[in-house]
């Protein structure tokens, strides 16, 4: 393992850890900032890989992540936080139980995918990284996004869960094979548009609970 490879591993791992940070926050603003940190970490990973592969496409991709995920989405979400912003929080969150359930969830998910897929196929990873196990991090992050959507009932948490999933996909794509930049850019714009659309819902309805009319 050389130093650059270590940096890639570390930043990918930290991106996964940032998922846990987001999961453990009660205050909406901290969650949004956690998403910001995650975007920065992913951009950093992309830049290191761009350096290793000396690829312009990856530099552009990194910049896109920085601008769209890091700046625009964070800004959009922070502006939509109702009231004073800094003191809006979700009620009744058991952090310890959330963390542990999240852990169980991603472990089961990752292990199932690992035993079904990775034990039989060996993927070759970008940036001449040995082995394909680095894909564990984006997978874990993806499952964290799913768990965040499933475990929380406020609009914000669910949007952030969705963005986390998309972040995981970016990470997954750059490790495996960078998708053509035009498609990746369209995907980013789609996600941005979806966040804009969701922010309309935020204005009207802050939490989402089961309803009698929508049962069965």
């Amino acid at each position: 393992m050389n130093a650059l490879e270590n940096i890639v591993f570390l930043s990918a791992a930290l991106a996964t850890v940032s998922g846990f940070y987001i999961q453990a926050q009660e205050y909406i603003r901290s969650m949004v900032r956690g998403q910001f940190v995650q975007a920065i970490l992913i951009a950093a990973t992309i830049f290191v890989l761009a350096f290793v592969e000396s690829s312009i496409d990856l530099v552009v991709l990194g910049l896109l992540v920085l601008v769209l995920r890091g700046y625009l989405i964070t800004e959009l979400l922070e502006r939509r936080i109702p009231g004073k912003g800094s003191d809006v929080k979700e009620k009744d969150i058991g952090i310890a139980s959330h963390l542990l359930l999240d852990l169980v969830f991603i472990m089961i998910g990752t292990f199932i995918i690992y035993s079904l897929v990775f034990s039989r196929i060996t993927f070759s990873i970008a940036g001449s990284i040995a082995g394909d196990t680095i894909l564990v991090f984006p997978l874990a992050l993806f499952f964290q996004g799913l768990f965040l959507i499933a475990s929380r009932n406020s609009t914000f948490s669910q949007i952030i869960g969705y963005i986390e999933e998309e972040n995981a996909l970016v990470l997954f794509a750059i490790f495996l094979i960078p998708v053509p930049i035009i498609i990746e850019a369209s995907v980013f714009l789609d996600v941005l548009a979806l966040v804009v659309i969701s922010s309309f819902v935020v204005l009207e309805k802050f939490t989402h609970n089961p309803m009698d009319e929508l049962r069965g």
Partner: peptide, 9 residues
């Protein structure tokens, strides 16, 4: 729980 999560993850 955070410490435990780190270690087991």
């Amino acid at each position: 729980a955070t410490a435990f999560t780190f270690s087991i993850l």
